[in-house]
Design a protein around this nucleic acid. Structure first.
Lengths: 206, 206
DNA sequence: CGTCGATCTGACCAGGCGGTCAAACATTTT
DNA sequence: AAAATGTTTGACCGCCTGGTCAGATCGACG
């Protein structure tokens, strides 16, 4: 294994299979609770073979985090300075909620990492994540000061959108345990609720 | 050890020391990542001595969850049907935010358990937690229908208050990583932000 | 086909884990 | 003081874990 990432056809296939299996296992069990045997079994490989592709459990985990971070931040990055403020923020909320629905494993992976103190992720939180949040928060604060949004702290507004949308992925068992949805109707309810919540709070000049 | 809880003076002291140490370790490392050695060290006891007081790691963990659940639900239980709707809900939000600030270990303990699928807690989520949420959500829905609150789904409103307030405990390292607060001023900002958010969204008749 | 590197595996290891136990030590009771 | 009960410990065990390694197998290519 060179450090240049997958090259051959087999490498590409197994590399991807391992990362997908690892996402499954790490997101359910956390870093400490996950075992290489479980990841290998889920990927359909033997444990030594898995270690032929990744140097260590640690390497799989950090590989996952790195690979997923960009996708994870994409919705916020798409917040458009030239759009209508309320529409932009509601749109961002919807994209995040949609990500929670479609990519709950990724959401739980990040949640578990941060919950346990982000020992392997703190540098990127304080780096690109921080930069992006502060940039977009400044944009929101501009909108607020211009009277195009109710006066709300942009940084905490972003936090609240993370919290409310990721809640439906991270705390899925609790949401389902309380609501007992027959299929997925609670996602529609969540969308409508959050739409009303943020529309009511963001709309200025009442 | 009988099953009747601490009796002697020494038992009371060590029992409490163990639970406090366990809260520390479990909330930082999760169930799988925590070790009996770490808990014993934190409690100032030897591992066998720790197991003299609790039958197993599992027993300490579930003992903790049970002991803390009532306290955890107290703020919601205090939601008063006879109070002013907006004030009641804002008051509830403040109590929850205050709990996140004062009891972050407890918040992270529950978060970790639910995040990993609540394998040892699901029955109580579907039991007393569900009952309480549905009761208070019905109250909120009554207020909404009576025009005393903006029309919002009570169950999802409760979820959103959990999400936004517990976020500051569960994702503390991320919040601090982004905001870099010099002391604890971000808790004040959070209170003001959430106050404005929910006041704006809840206030009816615009 | 044959060769050579890429891929894969069974057997194995050292360390850490939850948990046990007999015996030592403390404390209370008689 | 002695007996009885409650508390603590060092030594230990079996199991699982992450990781290694020598060698077997596979697959692309001349």
């Amino acid at each position: 294994m060179t450090g240049d990432g997958p090259v051959t056809r087999i490498q590409k296939r197994n590399h991807a299979a391992i990362l997908d299996a690892a996402l499954d296992v790490f997101s359910r069990q956390g870093f400490a609770g996950a075992t290489l045997d479980a990841i290998a079994a889920q990927a359909g490989l033997s444990k030594p073979n898995l270690l032929y592709y990744f140097a260590s459990k640690e390497a799989i985990y950090t590989g996952l985090l790195t690979r997923l971070l960009a996708d994870w931040l994409a919705p916020l990055r798409a917040l458009d300075p030239h759009g209508d403020p309320v529409d932009e923020i509601l749109g961002y909320m919807r994209r995040k909620l949609d990500m929670s629905r479609r990519l709950p494993r990724e959401s739980r992976l990040f949640a578990g990492e941060i919950l346990s103190g982000a020992p392997r992720f703190l540098d990127r939180i304080e780096g690109e994540l921080r930069d992006l949040v502060l940039e977009k928060a400044a944009l929101i604060d501009d909108w607020s000061r211009g009277g195009r949004l109710a006066p709300l702290d942009g940084r905490h507004l972003i936090f609240s959108i993370w919290a409310t949308t990721q809640h439906y992925a991270d705390f899925d068992v609790q949401v389902r345990g309380v609501l007992r949805p027959e299929s997925d109707e609670h996602w529609i309810q969540a969308r409508d609720f959050l739409d009303a919540l943020y529309r009511g709070a963001l709309t200025p000049a009442r």
